[in-house]
Amino acid sequence: MNITLRVWRQRSSGDEGRMVTYQVEDVSPDMSFLEMLDVLNEKLTLAGEEPIAFDHDCREGICGACGVVIDGVAHGPETTTTCQLHMRSFDDGDTITVEPWRAKAFPVVKDLVVDRSSFDRIIQAGGYISAPTGSAPDAHATPVPKADADRAFDAATCIGCGACVAACPNASGMLFTAAKVTHLGSVPQGQPERDARVVQMLNQHDEEEFGGCTNIGECAAVCPKGIPLDTISQLNRDLLGSLATGSAE
């Protein structure tokens, strides 16, 4: 199939970017979206034009490195990561618009590559359980009800890709933050730091200039890992709880 691509090109964070149109011919429906970009990049290189920069690593949907907005939807038309999207989801002759994640907290580094280190800083603010190596009791010392373990797991599947931010009309990082709060708050080991965690992580979230959440739900609709929207409500519950006990601020 033949595809027309409109791709955001931007040399560096300081530069103005713009949309550039490319034709990609003989695209196989079995190609992944990123492989299609690889093919285009090979062609561009041989033609003397710099290849398009995009983040990726595992190409199996687990590292969270990849991610672009395709025709206005984060990660494109299927609910999966960009690397797991295949060209058979498009039709011959389609024009596809490809843009980077857009948010103040995710400045563009180059072309489709953005800087997501704000997520790391949210984790630094409290997205962990303090358990210095060697201090752990036997793993079976504290049983964890299966329901809690499953809930923790569902939230823990977040790959930190940032699609939630890209899709949120407020550019809020609430789903990512809530996923971590819910994961760690659902296991007994996470209880001692629970009240402080939610407050610290939210403060950092706000400091990174993510928008506020107004429960729109686009985030969960594009999340490739299906992080449930109710984690945000869980975060709000934890927050109200910590405000009530006065442990906040």
Partner: peptide, 30 residues
């Protein structure tokens, strides 16, 4: 909140194409 959202995705960083992954009606309400 509005101003925060505007700062979080400032002008010049808007998407060229926007489409909803959710139902359009609900999206319209939000």
């Amino acid at each position: 909140l509005w101003r925060r959202a505007a700062r979080a995705r400032p002008a010049g960083q808007r998407y060229a194409v926007r489409r909803s992954a959710q139902s359009p009606a609900r999206r319209y309400a939000t």
